[in-house]
Design a protein around this nucleic acid. Structure first.
Lengths: 104, 104
DNA sequence: CGTATATATGAATAGTTGTTCATATGTTCA
DNA sequence: TGAACATATGAACAACTATTCATATATACG
């Protein structure tokens, strides 16, 4: 049977760049607070701005990036836009980073 | 019994900054390749430079940062310095990011 | 000792990134 | 329709980061 490729094999430039880009999404204090606020619930831009302590404009800019990376989803309802984490992997990855900081 | 704090509670600025800093360590293509090369083995600076495709000087600069964050360990042997991932959490976090990029 | 080798460091620089401000788009409701 | 509201966008700027180059430290070995 064919074995899966070793996780520690040299990473090609392209894959490494994608991984780096993914982690970069979580590499800013404001974005971390936005993502933390979105774990397990959806929120509109105004509420997110309050939760993260930054302007709604800044939130919008961050959310655009997160949306383009498919880390968050947008749902429009009237004049509000509700954001949520795109899938459980996002929450899990964030949670693991948080755990590392808190314990271990 | 006391329930554990909700993961989605608003994150204080300090914790958010620490989480962001952790993810930032993985947010650069060169560092991702360095860490990938270190999964499951130790390597000296020269070998890491080759594996990541950057100069030894650049490797040294990156490793200093990773050392200060206790993500890698250094072991000196003669005039070589062997680096390894500091603990399994580091490898696990990296692996989860890689998995997200590859599948899901 | 002196030379070669391995790694580290500091300064300089080019490129990137987060935020702000002004403005635009789109929606509701009177 | 028009005013108020929610969100998005673009340009500009300050702050940060990765790399390079030159140089420093440290070890090995003749």
């Amino acid at each position: 049977m064919k074995v899966s490729p070793r996780a520690d094999a040299a990473l090609d430039e392209r894959t490494a760049a994608q991984v780096a880009e993914l982690f970069a999404a979580f590499s800013d204090t404001s974005r971390v607070r936005l993502i933390a606020a979105l774990v397990g619930r959806e929120m509109n831009v105004g509420a997110l701005a309050e939760a993260a302590g930054i302007s709604e404009s800044a939130v919008s800019h961050h959310l655009r990036g997160l949306r383009q990376m498919r880390l968050v989803r947008a749902r429009k309802e009237g004049r509000q836009v509700y954001y949520s984490l795109d899938d459980d992997h996002v929450a899990a990855l964030f949670q693991q980073g948080l755990d590392h900081v808190r314990h271990g």
